[in-house]
Design a protein around this nucleic acid. Structure first.
Lengths: 240, 240
DNA sequence: CGCTGGATTGACTCGGATCAAGTCGAGTGG
DNA sequence: CCACTCGACTTGATCCGAGTCAATCCAGCG
């Protein structure tokens, strides 16, 4: 079976066969989670490293006033929070979106891998840097982009990331994100998200419905988004 | 002379005298920068690790449409981008605000320290996690807080961070952040920032002018901000 | 078959942006 | 010492993007 975690790390930095073997062994016992299940909640003591093998999840925070902010989407191949065990408690929760297959690597094992497999460590660090870059782009979107640009930009980003691990086929992407979730991710109202999606549909750029994204006109979408993929850091340094 | 970098790391994880000696040696040749000087620009190849010893700086991004988004404020004791050398280019710039004293630690030396001084490595990782938490809080603010709450929340956060390294004396904090910078940080207009600051002044919570922040009524400010300092992770795990 | 949670649409409101003048203080040069 | 300038801060008037409130529609499902 495909191991998307390995695929993703390979995309970050070359891995040897021993590295791959170790990673496959570490993620050999995944667990199935139902939809909308918390993997970990805000305030919990951090546990093992999670690796999403199939399905989607998101990081989120609930504010005192009851509103929710989605901080990131996790897709197959993503892992989270390498050193998080150093902190006393989680500052946010992680929840599955649909049913998901998730492996856990406990801290001791992860530490061993990081020490004995420098190529894996390197790939993990690259992944962490990319996540940070994604957060910076997220902040930038929230602060300085109009709502339609924000939506278009997020779709570009998700599509690009999904393509990297072979999740997207052509212009199509299975994307199980409800309008409500999208609203909470982009700091908008579900009502307004709906109107923006209609605009994007009418402009011929893309269509999102019932869990699938179709990018009908990439050029238009990119133009609307003002999408600059620099922050995806696709060119990774060759030399160590 | 005080080394605020050491002070900050100490706050993250205990350091031995050898660790401190190594850090002081590594930051022994700082350079003075004038105000508004880029330490590094978006698109540049990442270089050494920067350590701010005195003065303030900020991370920022310029959008295609010419607007700016400030991503983070760096205060004395802050360092940036531990593993950034793994990426091909910067996805954002770093610029001084006022005159600043900045040390650089080149990658080879930093790698050596990380390998030979586990306590320092641990503190650096904790610092990185806290920075990530700060970014998550930033996103949350931008997405789900009103403008007055956003401003109040940022001030609480800056005050708390400054207090940790002994920068704030009582209710006062020297904070060289112009209203324009604040606007670009919080995704608002300078005009609106000005009105919000007036509101905060009139509410008796705080006053910000000419580079200094005075928190006249902490309770009110915290109430306005809905400030939950959990994400500051002040309680750090004792055990490794 | 009725329930339920998402998606959709319309009418209205409001927070914050935009546009346009000022004001104030620190230099700077005559 | 005063005039000039320049950048940062203030303030008012007006506009618009997005939120709010409220129905309605629709598909999946126990």
């Amino acid at each position: 079976m495909k191991n998307r975690f390995v695929d993703r790390l390979r995309g970050y930095s070359p891995l040897g066969t021993d590295d791959v073997t170790a990673l496959i062994a570490a993620t050999a016992r995944p667990r199935t989670y139902p939809a909308r299940r918390d993997l970990i909640r805000e305030g919990d003591r951090p546990g093992p490293v999670f690796v999403i093998l199939e399905g989607w999840a998101h990081r989120y925070k609930i504010l005192p006033n009851g509103t929710r902010q989605v901080l990131a989407f996790l897709m197959p191949g993503d892992s989270c929070d390498l050193h998080i065990g150093l902190l006393a408690e989680m500052d946010h929760g992680i929840q599955t979106i649909g049913p998901a297959l998730v492996a856990t690597i406990d801290r001791a094992e992860m530490d061993t891998i990081m020490e004995t497999r420098p190529a894996v460590a390197r790939a993990m660090y690259v992944g962490q840097l990319i996540d940070e870059g994604t957060m910076r782009a997220w902040i930038t979107s929230m602060g300085r982009r109009q709502s339609i640009e924000r939506v278009a930009h997020l779709m570009c980003k998700l599509y690009a990331r999904a393509t990297n691990i072979g999740l997207a086929s052509g212009t199509d992407l299975e994307l199980p994100i409800s309008q409500l979730l999208l609203a909470d991710a982009l700091g908008m109202t579900p009502v307004h998200i709906n109107r923006v999606l209609r605009k994007l549909r009418e402009s011929g750029a893309m269509t999102l419905n019932r869990g699938s994204l179709v990018i009908s006109d990439p050029a238009t979408l990119v133009r609307i988004a003002g999408f600059d993929e620099n922050y995806l850091h696709r060119r990774i340094r060759k030399a160590a």
